[in-house]
Design a protein around this nucleic acid. Sequence first.
RNA 1: CGGGGUGUAGCUCAGCUUGGUAGAGCGCUUGCUUCGGGAGCAAGAGGCCGCAGGUUCAAAUCCUGUCACCCCGACCA
Length: 552
Amino acid sequence: MPFVLPSRSCAGTHSTNTKRSENTMSNDKNAPSQKQAAPTSAITPTRAENYPEWYQQVVRAAELAENSDVRGCMVIKPWGYAVWENVQRVLDKMFKDTGHKNAYFPLFIPLSYFEKEAEHVEGFAKECAVVTHHRLAPGIKADGKPGLIPAGELQEPLVVRPTSETIIGASFSKWVQSYRDLPLLINQWANVVRWEMRTRLFLRTTEFLWQEGHTAHANSDEAMVETLKMLEVYADFAENWMAMPVIKGEKTEGERFPGAVHTYCIESMMQDRKALQAGTSHFLGQNFAHASDIKFSDADGKVSFAWTTSWGVSTRLIGGMIMTHADDDGMILPPRLAPSHVVIIPVTHKPETAQAVLDFCNKLAADLRGIAYAGRHVEVEVDARDIRGGDKAWQWIKKGIPLRVEVGPRDMEQDSVFMARRDRGHKDKQSLKRDDFVATVTTILEDMQSSMFARAKAHRDENTKRVDSRAEFDAFFGAKNDAESEDGPGGGAVKGGFALAHYAPDPKVEDELKTRLAVTCRCIPVEGADEPGICIFSGKPSTRRAVFAKSY
RNA sequence: CGGGGUGUAGCUCAGCUUGGUAGAGCGCUUGCUUCGGGAGCAAGAGGCCGCAGGUUCAAAUCCUGUCACCCCGACCA
């Protein structure tokens, strides 16, 4: 099978896995229920067996989130929400450092506001939740039973924001009078609703959490600088905090944000070699300024429309983190964003030494917490729960905590700890002197952070190919419904990866690629030198290669 | 909105064809033995079988209706 694991040293742990997984996944009701050998991987199925199902199982096993009873909506659990809080904390600082201020705008957008920008309406109309009533009254429901039914119809329906350009534009039009009011640099942390047909935890849910930056500028150049500056912030965050390598690029017309003039993005490759759009930054020109009447008087007293931008990242980033780093034993958290860095597991099954071991662990935890790391201090859990040690260790493995430290009586006697790194095999443990561990813990975390990035980047580079002909392109991806291209029953891996090809943008070509190969143009990279060439689809001249891939 | 499927214990499901009053595994509780890597044995708690009608002496099982969810297609951060 073409699935390619990032190279890592977890040798020998997956060899006997297939039989067990087949039984577990099978619908064969006569499958023997005999005891299986201890699992060789914590997650069933593995990535190679069924990537989409593996993803769901990791989210669940790592206790990041779960499906709620509300269709398409997720419950973000404490461990997952703590990751999001770290994302917020770091990004918020980056936004503040680039001059932005936070504000908050209404969840509800009057339909009339929403209608102001034609392309915008067209783009979002199909996925809007609409509030039409403001009261519940006793009555007979559709199923004939008594209950509460909506009453008090609104004069004007309210759209639950799928994005806030229009409602924020309404404020901007009041706030901006003079060129002295510009630039206006605002960010909002919020939830939004997009009524999607199909949902997947973190990657696409009906309601999700995000931030949306909205800015207004006196001229086109400034707005473009802002657009690219925030793209850079996102790339910086993705690579240096999430350890997720990204390609910065511009979307072609078909993939553009509804109403934008230019849409830029960061694109990342997941372990199944599909692309994930991890963040977007839009240059909106004067489109929304016209729609929302954002005007200002310049120094000469001449009235002009402002130039606006918007940019956002969402809880989808957590999905990207999972699909970039997690393995067949569960989540692996990049240390800089991990809710906790170290779990200390006291081995206390001998009553006579239990208290001493606990004291030793608590003292160790206190010392570690005194150390600064990645803008906070080292976060430590002491897991003294009364459950079996193996169970406990596996729970933390699945949750992806970077470092696991076990301390038993024997370690304590030698003033040592037994440490395992989550990005190494779970049997790859080493004994360290306690003080050495304390002294080097941040170095270890940083090493883990950078090796996670390096591994992800190597995976991407290995699966990125320069393609110079249509035939080569087709062969790289395989036909959309080619059984081999989707690799097995669950679509464990897709064929292909990133194809870099010369391309003269043409919506018709992209439609055709999408229909026939399920491939889209992810972006035209903004970095790197121009390279004159010939579009492999049309033969027209092209100045640079575009990135093509199957995508989420 | 088209095509398919499923609703039974906290979770995953069996039982339904051939009606006879509720099952398994996991999880949970308790006890004993274990314990430096996902333990074993024993006992126990937990379900008016999605909902509403109908057939029948008797319905999880058959019939009708209804609701919900899942999967596959056209959209998306």
